[in-house]
Design a protein around this nucleic acid. Structure first.
Lengths: 224, 224
DNA sequence: TCAAGCATTCGTACTTAGTACGACTTGCTA
DNA sequence: TAGCAAGTCGTACTAAGTACGAATGCTTGA
C-alpha cells in the first residue's frame, strides 16, 4: 500500500569496503561469526547487495587472505638474509596474531591472490641470495613457514581461551585433572606455565633463532 | 539405593561406532562434509538418534580429536630422548596426514580428552628426562609442536589440491601467472618443485633434525 | 507371564546460513 | 525523455544443527 520509497545513495559499497568490514568482523567476533547477513548489517545493507561486489563467500575469504598477506612485511632487501627473514617472520607472527582466524585459511585457499604470490616471490628471492641451492631453498621455506604457521595457530588458540571464559575454562580443565594422574603436567603448570612472568610468545624468537642458525650452517655460513 | 547397573539393550549404535563413522566420513570427504545428517545416513539411522550417544556436534569433534591423539605414538621410554621425540613427531605427522581435517582442530578444542592429556604428559616427561630446565622444556615443546602442526597443515593443503581438481587448479594458477612477474617462483617451480623426484614431505625430517640438533645443543649435549 | 519403566529411535519443525531469482530504483546517456 | 546499466533488496529455496515429544521394544519386578 504505502510505497514509502527511501533515499538510496550512489556507490556506498565497494569490494574494498566489504573486505574491510569483513576483516573487522572476523577480528572482533571470530571467523564463524562472519556471515553474509551479519556483514550486511554491519554495512547497513542487505545480504544480496554484497553479491554485486564479491563473488560469493569463498571469494570473500580469498580476498581476506590476500589482505592478510599484504600486511606481512616482505624481507627487506637491504639486510643480510638471516636478518631479513627474521623481520618477515616476526611480522608474519604479529599479523597472524591480529587476524587469528586467518591461520587455517592461509594455505588452504585454492585461488592465490596477487599479494600472496608477491610475498612468496620475495621470500624465495631472499633464500636465493643466501646462496642456497634450490633443494635447500625448498627445505628452508617449508621449515620456516611450518614453524610460523604452527606457532601462530597455537597462539591463536591460547588467545581464544584467554577470552571471557577464562575462569570457567581453567576450572573445567582442572576438574578433569586427576591430581596425581599427570604429575609432570601439574609440575610444569605450577612451577612454570602459571607463573606471572611466563609468556608463551617468548618461544617464538627462540625457535626462530634455532632455525635460522641451523639454516646458516647448512648454507655454509656462520650463524649470524 | 537401587543398584541400577544396566547394559546397553540393543546397541545398534554406540558412541564408539559413531566416532568411527565420523572419522571415516571426515577422512574420505573432508570435515565440511561431516554433517549430522550424512553421518546418520552412513550409520543407517536418523539424525536425532545421534544425539542420544553424543552431546551435540561440538562434543563429537572433541571426541574425534581425542581419537586422533590416541593414534599418535608416545615417545618410547626406552630410547634416548632425541630418538624418542623423533619417533613421536614422525608418528604425529603420519597420523595428521591420515586425518588432515584434524589439524586446525587439534589445538582449538576447549575440552581436552584423556588421550590428549596423556599424550602431553608423555612428551613433557621425555623433555624432562633430557635434563632440560622447565623454561627450556617450554621452548622445546612449543617449537616442536609448532613445526609439526604447521608442517601437517601445509601437507594437508597440498593433498587437497592434488585431488580431482588437479588439472583445473594448476591451469588456473598458471593462468594467473604473468610469465615474467614472478621469476624466482617460476624458476623454483620449473627446476625443482615440479621435477618428478621432488617431494615436499622430505622437508619434514630435515626440519625435525634441525630442531632436535639445536635442542640437543641447548640442553648441553652433543647433537645425537 | 505381563505390564511398567526406560533407553533408544525417529518424525516434525524451528532456526540460522548461503544464495538464486527477479523486481525495483536511480542516475546517465543517446 | 526514454531506456539502459549498475546497484539494491524482497522473497524463497536449500542445507544444516537441534529441540520437542511420540513411538518402539527390551528388561525387570510382581
Amino acid at each position: 500500500m504505502s510505497d514509502t520509497r527511501q533515499d538510496v545513495r550512489k556507490p556506498r559499497l565497494s569490494r574494498e569496503r566489504i573486505l574491510d568490514a569483513a576483516m573487522d568482523l572476523a577480528d572482533r567476533d571470530g571467523i564463524e561469526a562472519l556471515t553474509i547477513r551479519k556483514l550486511a548489517d554491519e554495512l547497513g545493507t542487505k545480504p544480496m547487495t554484497i553479491y554485486h561486489h564479491v563473488d560469493g563467500k569463498e571469494a570473500l575469504l580469498d580476498g581476506m587472505v590476500d589482505v592478510v598477506f599484504s600486511e606481512i612485511a616482505k624481507p627487506p632487501v637491504d639486510l643480510p638474509w638471516q636478518e631479513a627473514l627474521r623481520v618477515r617472520c616476526r611480522s608474519a607472527r604479529e599479523v597472524l596474531g591480529r587476524h587469528p582466524w586467518s591461520v587455517p585459511l592461509l594455505e588452504s585457499r585454492h585461488h592465490p591472490g596477487p599479494e600472496l604470490l608477491a610475498h612468496h616471490e620475495s621470500v624465495l628471492v631472499t633464500l636465493d641470495r643466501a646462496g642456497m641451492p634450490l633443494p635447500l631453498v625448498a627445505h628452508a621455506y617449508a621449515v620456516l613457514d611450518s614453524f610460523v604457521y604452527g606457532f601462530a595457530m597455537q597462539e591463536a588458540n591460547l588467545a581464544v581461551q584467554r577470552g571471557d571464559e577464562d575462569a570457567e575454562l581453567a576450572e573445567e580443565i582442572a576438574a578433569a585433572f586427576d591430581p596425581g594422574a599427570y604429575p609432570m603436567m601439574t609440575r610444569f603448570a605450577m612451577e612454570h606455565a602459571m607463573q606471572p612472568d611466563f609468556n608463551f610468545g617468548d618461544s617464538f624468537d627462540y625457535g626462530l633463532d634455532l632455525l635460522l642458525d641451523g639454516l646458516s650452517r647448512a648454507a655454509g655460513q656462520e650463524p649470524a
